[in-house]
């Protein structure tokens, strides 16, 4: 439990390409410095979020290891970790109904204002499930 009881949530805040994001610290198993390695379970955050063809510069790439329930390895390279902050869940704002289906498909489930900055809350587990479902559809098609 945290200070805010059932309504509290610890968020790991970082930014990629000058866009602020936040993930539930419960989903993070560990943080390591990116050494330039290349592995099958290591993904760049902008590719996972579908930034498209936009060129994103990582100033201080950091590898976040996602805590997966089925021990499936899943690591994402993020940039500029800023803080781990405890926030109240009622301060989280849902996406507008028009955007919510699209946002959920990209793993974004809410919006939070922290010190005047808009922080998009990302659910890596949802992203992982989407990736798994897509892989399954691709495998069925083959």
């Amino acid at each position: 439990m945290n200070d805010l009881g059932e309504t509290g949530l610890n968020l790991l805040l970082f930014s990629v390409g000058e866009v602020h994001f936040g993930i539930d610290s419960e989903q993070v198993a560990g943080i390591n410095a990116f050494q330039g390695e290349d592995a099958g379970d290591l993904f760049w955050f902008h590719n996972e979020m579908g930034f498209g063809d936009a060129t994103v510069t990582y100033l201080l790439p950091t590898v976040v290891t996602i805590r997966c329930p089925d021990e499936q390895p899943y690591r994402v390279i993020i940039d500029l970790m800023e803080d781990i902050r405890e926030i109240a869940t009622d301060s989280i704002l849902p996406f507008p109904p028009l955007l919510e289906p699209f946002a959920l498909r990209k793993g974004m489930w809410g919006v939070l204002l922290v010190e005047g900055k808009m922080v998009l809350l990302v659910d890596f587990m949802r992203i992982l499930r989407e990736k798994t479902a897509v892989s399954a559809r691709h495998g069925g098609d083959e």
């Binding site: 790991l12 610290s25 201080l60 970790m81 781990i84």
Partner: peptide, 16 residues
């Protein structure tokens, strides 16, 4: 930076 990562990991551990 490594110290910072350690501190983040420690914070994650402390939070968990």
């Amino acid at each position: 930076n490594q110290t910072k990562l350690i501190a983040f990991n420690a914070a994650l551990e402390a939070a968990s």
